[in-house]
Design a protein around this nucleic acid. Structure first.
Lengths: 185, 185
DNA sequence: TTCGTCATGTAATGGGTTACATGATTAC
DNA sequence: GTAATCATGTAACCCATTACATGACGAA
C-alpha cells in the first residue's frame, strides 16, 4: 500500500522524503496521514530493491542568492524497474485492490493506469460494495435477536453509504465506458 | 479494539470462541471479519489478565439424547475485573474512539455505555467527520496542481459521505438529548 | 532566543493477517 | 464416504504506529 503510493507519486516527479509525505497527505491524507517512521524505512526498502534511486539533491544544496548550504536532501526517482512494478501494482484488480483504502489509492493513480485495468478495478469495487449493501439489507430485514436500536442505526447508515457509493461507481463506470467508446471510434 | 469487542460481547452472555466470532461478524462483520489467528490469542491474553474466565462447557459436553461426547469447548465469561475494564473502554471518548472502526464498535455497545459517555463519543465523532469534511471542501475549492479528475471525483464522494454522516450524527445526537431530557424530568 | 517547520532516521511495539495443523460432528 | 461446518490453536510474517534522537533554518 505504502509502496504503491510512493511509486505512484514518484512516477510524476522525483521528490525527497519530506516532500513525498506532504504530497501523500494532499492526495490521500483525509484517509490517513502516514508517519515518517514507516515512510523512511519503506524508501530504503524500495531503494534496496532497485525500484527507486536515491541521490543527494544537487540543485537545492546551495541557495543561489546567498550561497548558504541547506541540509542535504535525498531525492528519490523511479527507476525502470520501479515503473514496471508500479504498472503491475496498478493493474492488479484482485480482491485486495477493492478494499476501502486500497481502492482509493488505485483511483488516485488512474491517470497512469490502463483503461482495461481501470474498468476491472471499478467493477470489482462495485461488486464489493454491493455485497456489503446486500449483507446490510439482509441484516436490517430480519431484526435478529440482540440487535439494539444503536446497532440498527449504524447498519442503516452503512446501507445508505453503500447505496450512495454504488451510484457513484455506476457514474464513474458509465463515464469510463463513454470515453472508451469515444476513443475506439 | 478486539479486546473491547470481545468484552462487549461477553458482557451479554458467556460464549465460546467460535460462537464469539460469529457474533462478532453479525454485529460488525460488514466492517471487518476477524480471524481465529487473532481471536484465540486475544482470548488467552484476556484470560491471563483476569478479565475473562475460561471453563470447559459442562452443559454441552454431553449430548443428552445419545450420551455422545462433543468436543470440549471453552466457555468464556466476563469477570468483575472484565466488567470494569469494559466500562473504562466504553467510556473512553478520546480521539482513538472517533476512528471509523473504533466508533462503530463503541456504538454497537452503546446500550451498555453511560449516557454522558455516549454524548461525548457522538460529539467527538461528529467533530472528526466535520474536520474531514472541511478538509475536503478546502481541497475541492482550490483546484491545486496535479489533482486529476479521478482524484477530484474521489474527494467529491468523500465530501458527500462526510456530509451524510454528519447529518446522521446530528439526528442521533438530537435523539440522545431528547431522551436525556425526558429521563431527567 | 525560542518556536515552528524542514529534514532524516532508529527501536520498540502493536495489532492484526495468512497458512498450517488437528480433529470431531453433521448433512447429503 | 465425503464435504461442510464446528472447534481450537500455533508460527511466521506484515505493515504500520509511537516515541525517541538529531540537527539546520527562518521568522517573531
Amino acid at each position: 500500500m505504502l509502496e504503491f503510493a510512493v511509486l505512484g507519486i514518484l512516477h510524476d516527479s522525483p521528490m525527497h522524503g519530506y516532500q513525498l509525505r506532504k504530497r501523500l497527505r494532499e492526495l490521500l491524507g483525509w484517509m490517513r496521514a502516514i508517519s515518517f517512521g514507516s515512510l523512511y524505512p519503506t524508501l530504503r526498502r524500495l531503494q534496496r530493491a532497485g525500484l527507486i534511486s536515491e541521490d543527494l539533491s544537487a540543485d537545492t544544496a546551495w541557495d543561489g542568492t546567498r550561497g548558504r548550504q541547506r541540509r542535504a536532501r535525498k531525492v528519490y526517482r523511479l527507476t525502470a524497474a520501479g515503473k514496471q512494478r508500479f504498472a503491475e501494482l496498478a493493474a492488479d484488480s484482485g480482491p485486495a485492490a477493492c478494499d476501502d483504502e486500497s481502492f482509493g489509492v488505485h483511483l488516485v493513480f488512474f491517470a497512469r493506469t490502463p483503461a482495461s485495468a481501470r474498468m476491472r478495478i471499478l467493477e470489482g469495487r462495485r461488486r464489493r460494495v454491493e455485497e456489503r449493501r446486500e449483507g446490510l439489507r439482509c441484516a436490517l430485514a430480519r431484526p435478529g435477536e440482540g440487535i439494539d436500536h444503536y446497532t440498527r442505526a449504524l447498519q442503516q447508515q452503512g446501507l445508505e453509504a453503500s447505496e450512495h457509493e454504488v451510484r457513484w461507481l455506476n457514474e464513474l463506470i458509465a463515464h469510463e465506458r463513454a470515453e472508451q467508446g469515444f476513443e475506439s471510434k
